[in-house]
Design a protein around this nucleic acid. Sequence first.
DNA 1: AGCGCTTTCGTAAGCGCTTTCGGTTACTGT
DNA 2: ACAGTAACCGAAAGCGCTTACGAAAGCGCT
Lengths: 352, 352
Amino acid sequence: MSEDPEGDTLAKGRPTLRLQDVAEAAGVSIATASRSLSRTAGVSEEVAERVRGVARDMGYVANVHARSLAGGASRSVGLVVHEIGDPYFTEIASGVLRVGAREGLTVQICHTGRDPQQELEQIRTLIANRVGAIVIAGSGFVDPADQAAAKADLASYRRFGGRVAVIGRHHLSADAVLPDNLTGGRAVARHLLDLGHRRIAVVAGMRSLTTVADRLAGIEEAFAAAGIPFADVPVVEAPFTRLGGKQAAEEILAAHPDVTAILALNDDMAIGVLSVLRDRGIAVPGRMSVTGFDDVAVAVDLAPALTTVRLPMVDMGEQALLMALKEPSARPRRRTAECDLVVRDSTAVPES
Amino acid sequence: MSEDPEGDTLAKGRPTLRLQDVAEAAGVSIATASRSLSRTAGVSEEVAERVRGVARDMGYVANVHARSLAGGASRSVGLVVHEIGDPYFTEIASGVLRVGAREGLTVQICHTGRDPQQELEQIRTLIANRVGAIVIAGSGFVDPADQAAAKADLASYRRFGGRVAVIGRHHLSADAVLPDNLTGGRAVARHLLDLGHRRIAVVAGMRSLTTVADRLAGIEEAFAAAGIPFADVPVVEAPFTRLGGKQAAEEILAAHPDVTAILALNDDMAIGVLSVLRDRGIAVPGRMSVTGFDDVAVAVDLAPALTTVRLPMVDMGEQALLMALKEPSARPRRRTAECDLVVRDSTAVPES
DNA sequence: AGCGCTTTCGTAAGCGCTTTCGGTTACTGT
DNA sequence: ACAGTAACCGAAAGCGCTTACGAAAGCGCT
């Protein structure tokens, strides 16, 4: 045991090295050591470099808790998602983690499980944890009271230097990166209409989600532009998940057996739709065209490869965090992410 | 602004309420308040309940940094993964996050990007962050020096109360939850052999990963049991990703056009293989059977639905964290996760 | 009544860091 | 040579909490 100098030091009663240990080793005060390591002005470059060298050699890593308790600012950020297993959030998380790693920030990820109460609680915890920034990717407030409470908390958080960015919704008066859902919705709908489909069904998530509302609005526009009434189009609401897609597909097949295309409002639901169609022996795109939205990683590898709307989710995650990290601006910034139609093999001209 | 009482209080110069504010409001000392909130002995239940009530009403949330700086113990845990976008890690993360939420712990997720240096650094950061437990799901140490360094750090971390659990490898002498890769490998291989396949190719990740090695060993056992030589079986190593699967498939198709089954060592690679076969117009399972490993969420929704080995990844994530949270035991605990063969539509009796 | 004991609560000492403020030194100008 | 300035560094005061430790109060006992 004593042949291991580091283990020995640590065994002296402390789990890790303290700044004081580094300062002593370098022959300076802890104030100087602190300034050297955090690159604050007031130390000659010569001394600072020496201290940093000593710290590096000793394997010193600052205690974040002490750091943020003393300094206020924190080297960690929070990410709120509905469910990390949902590929939409997975990719966003990937982007956020990537930027986090690059900037030397630790990322705390919170599940809300699509429960507004949980969401509020998670946001509060994040604030209490004094994270430097909060990225809210999954926000599902429906009750105005909850939303107001969150808004108030975030406002006071921001007032004290906290940064907030929201992805996909613009209801918390924070910086936001917003996919151009309207254009995307218009594009898929138009694609289907251009192919000649007239009996189209829409598989949607809950309309209370702005994402759903925007995509639907785009679709409606496309119908209007084509001079086709949208009122008769069946829009089935179901959970924004694969299972929800299955349920919706069953429902459509039962109630509207004559539809020739199913337009799902996200890929996860589209995958559910495809699996139901496969089980029923309904050929895609032969007898039924199917479209998704998001272009999750597997979309291209499905059979048939899914026609969908590409959303740069990893990018959006990166952008959101970067935006939050920037100097705060007086009024919320907006950044729109392009939605591009990606035509693959799940759509075709309708049969006869 | 003054009509918002909470905003007003907060605006007094502090981002959030302090324990002292609660103590004053409840008419007790901060020591008593602390004890009441953390449910430490030494306070009458009556007083404690009152303090908790006050705190709840005020919306007080303790500052974790102060908490863990003072108390040592921390209410957060770390999770190390290669890449959150990889579905294997996504599901594990989902399990860890679920337990975290249930236990009121915040979870810090770190990407290693499959880089051992990054991994080491991330582990060190987590230790410096004083997380209460570390779950290492993606460990890719190959250089013994790196591994030893990590082991030393983790050992000293544990000596001071830190908890460590590893998923899928058992090289850091920590608690581990280990999928029964051997049995799983044996099962898929046997399935293919039972169907009558004799010209089988294996699509593997890097052999240096114990996961890969174990699964291969199981496969070899199945061949041995069937009295079929394994030496001639082509084993193509490629990155453990969808793209790797594609590369491997191309290679196999070029070098061994006569194989009737491709056994991929994870689903991601299998998905890549399937997409190559689809592009080439090779029918699955008609002309080629394909198997995966892991049973990621989409496996069942692929076309054809993938025959694979189910690994309870969400469960494994939950188990790992729960295990780490338990009282530490003298010697590392092991928990094996069952691997069940799931036969679906991507395998069949070979043609002719 | 006085003694020890237990229970309940408050006082105060840190946890490891950042940062203000004051002191020291080195340098300029006269 | 000396005042004035700037650059650098150290002492010490917290950040908000936990947790010894000690004080006070209530209890049964002699």
